[in-house]
């Protein structure tokens, strides 16, 4: 079994190289010169700009720049053009924020989605089932930023029960989970909202399919109580497709973080990625994009593993 997983991990390495090359090429082709962003629009002469470019390592041959960039990410010698912080440290600071919101969002979405889906599946075509399907389609049609603005308007600016910005009380630093709870409510809700809808839809189908499966009928035939049947047989069988859908939506979290973090003022990965892209801060763009790719690959791996637990046949394949 471990050989299987090792193989899976090994497969992802060429993928990472390809992703990093692609990002590197895009950045090279981009017009605009990052050195101009470090100086005032007043006047540096051409020689001074050349010096600046050199100080950023932009005058080296491209392959050298590429290799240095890749190595630099890992050993921390690659630094942001602007803040001069090691990019890996910036990522390290931002990751807990994104991970907290993302994982809580995914957790809330999974709980809510599975519960709703299982509930609706009990009576296919019934009122609840139909209401759910309308709710699902509506939920995935609302833009994240609209939902965020709406919630902020109501809870932060109107009722003033939740903070309007940040991951912790303004002016504090470090990690204090209790103090951060109010700050997490809205971002987690917004993150969970569309995911819950999708998971609900797939859970409903999965539970429904499991319900009509033969061994469930057999179990019912044996006279087991419906509750026991649901727990023991139906949910277990429905788990495989549910795990797969959770795995599929996980990468979406990262994309969603871009908007959620911007609007809610969270210092997370999505936020630094956008800021860096807009400022041509190549090292940071490179690092965050590669990180995102790693995360997607990792999410796929985790899904596979979870899949293996839910359905032992997969591991044997």
């Amino acid at each position: 079994m471990s050989r299987y997983w090792l193989g899976r991990v090994a497969q992802s390495i060429p993928m990472l190289v390809a992703v990093s090359l692609a990002v590197f090429v895009v950045l090279q082709l981009a017009p605009g010169d990052p050195s101009t962003l470090l100086a005032d629009p007043a006047y540096l002469d051409d020689r001074q700009r050349a010096e600046l470019r050199a100080s950023l390592g932009l005058d080296e041959p491209l392959p050298v720049q590429y290799v240095r960039t890749m190595g630099g990410i890992l050993d921390g010698s690659l630094r942001s053009f602007r803040t001069k912080e090691p990019t890996i440290a910036m990522l390290g600071d931002a990751l807990p924020v994104t991970a907290t919101v993302g994982l809580l969002g995914l957790g809330v979405a999974t709980l809510a989605g599975v519960a709703l889906g299982a509930y609706a599946a009990r009576q296919p075509g019934g009122r609840i089932d139909r209401a759910l399907s309308i709710a699902v389609v509506s939920a995935i049609s609302i833009p994240t930023f609209v939902l965020s603005l709406l919630l902020l308007r109501v809870f932060a600016e109107g009722l003033r029960v939740l903070p309007a910005t940040g991951i912790r009380p303004i002016g504090s630093s470090g990690i204090d989970p209790i103090a951060s709870i109010p700050h997490l409510v809205l971002p987690v809700l917004v993150t969970a909202f569309p995911l819950a809808a999708i998971i609900a839809r797939y859970s409903r189908d999965a539970v429904r399919e499991a319900l009509v499966a033969e061994h469930v009928r057999t179990a019912e035939g044996k006279g087991l109580r419906p509750g026991t049947v649901q727990r023991r047989h139906v949910l277990r069988n429905a788990l495989v497709p549910i795990v797969s859908v959770v795995g599929t939506v996980a990468p979406l979290l990262l994309g969603g973080s871009v908007i959620v973090e911007s609007i809610f003022g969270l210092p997370g990965v999505g936020r630094i990625a956008v800021a860096a892209a807009l400022q041509r801060d190549f090292p940071v763009v490179m690092t965050t994009t590669l990180f995102a790719a790693v995360l997607v690959i990792f999410a796929n791996l985790v899904t596979d593993i979870a899949y293996g637990y839910a359905d032992p046949r997969i591991r044997l394949r």
Binding site: A156, A164, G265, V274
Partner: peptide, 21 residues
């Protein structure tokens, strides 16, 4: 103390002044 805040979504800056943050 003075806290100098960063605001990602510039359009939200005035919202934060209004909200008292």
């Amino acid at each position: 103390r003075i806290v100098s805040l960063a605001v990602a979504d510039q359009g939200r800056g005035f919202d934060l002044l209004k909200a008292g943050d």
